[in-house]
Amino acid sequence: MEKLIEQFSFGLFFWQLLLLIILLVVLRKVAWKPILNAIDERESGIKNALEAAENAKKEMQNVTADSERLLQEARMERDSMIKEAREMKEKIVADAKELAQVEADNMISQAKTAIEGEKKAAVADIKNQVATLSLEIAEKVIKEKFSEEGKQLKLVEEMVSDIKLN
């Protein structure tokens, strides 16, 4: 201990004190503050960047989920549309069939009436022609019969004999 106290140099202590104070003040100003601030800034920058990346990742996941959902919806919509279309087709086909049936029935009945009409007309026509022909035949026959005078007088006599005077 004695030796230590003896060895203690006040001059050295004084210079060390002075220089250490200068060193502390100067280094704090020119070195430690800018260095530590820069490091802090960088670290917060890195932290922010990491957070941003994490957020972006989450957002990406959301987007993926969204698109997945949209795809699902589209698929469902497509399915329902196809189903609807099929139903509509069936309905149209059924309707058409019904309509055609009605039309066909109408046409058949119209044709039937027309045929009936024609038939009647034809029958009437035939009747007329028969009548005409009968008349012509009758005419010819009569004409034949009356061509000879004797015959004619005979006929008249016959007719007159037929007619009974009442």
Binding site: S9, F10, G11, L12, F14, W15, Q16, L19, I22, L23, V26, L27, V30, A31, W32, I35
Partner: peptide, 24 residues
């Protein structure tokens, strides 16, 4: 009272300057 710039004081000055230079 001895305030001499001794060998050790020279070295403290050298180290101080070196540190200021290096870290600035």
């Amino acid at each position: 009272l001895d305030f001499s710039i001794t060998k050790n004081v020279v070295f403290i000055i050298v180290v101080s300057l070196l540190m200021i230079f290096m870290f600035s």
